[in-house]
């Protein structure tokens, strides 16, 4: 029984230790960033659904004119990429 517990703890610790430790954008975007991006895009006619981080960029799910979009922004909140889902 003890061996199972120790093994489980060791495996979890090992997998966490192997995760990246760089300084790029990651984790939840701050409320300020979300607010900025949302108001900026809403002004352009987008219906902003969610703001997250992915691959070191801010990733936004939004709708415009009945079409689905994924928009990507860098640290300076400049748009880097757009993907249309249709």
């Amino acid at each position: 029984m003890k061996r199972i517990i120790i093994l489980a703890l060791a495996l979890s610790a090992a997998s966490l230790a192997s995760a990246s430790q760089t300084n790029e954008i990651k984790g939840k975007p701050s409320a300020a960033v979300v607010e900025q991006i949302t108001s900026g895009l809403s002004a352009e006619g987008y219906d902003v659904r969610s703001v997250k981080t992915e691959d070191g960029m801010y990733e936004v799910y939004a709708l415009k004119d009945g079409k689905r979009y994924e928009l990507y922004f860098g640290k300076d909140l400049k748009m880097l990429d757009t993907k249309n889902d249709d």
């Binding site: 979890s12 610790a13 997998s15 966490l16 230790a17 192997s18 995760a19 990246s20 430790q21 990651k26």
Partner: peptide
């Protein structure tokens, strides 16, 4: 816990 901690590694 794993998905919250993963981007940060052990420092999470």
């Amino acid at each position: 816990v794993m998905s919250d901690a993963f981007p940060y590694g052990l420092s999470a």
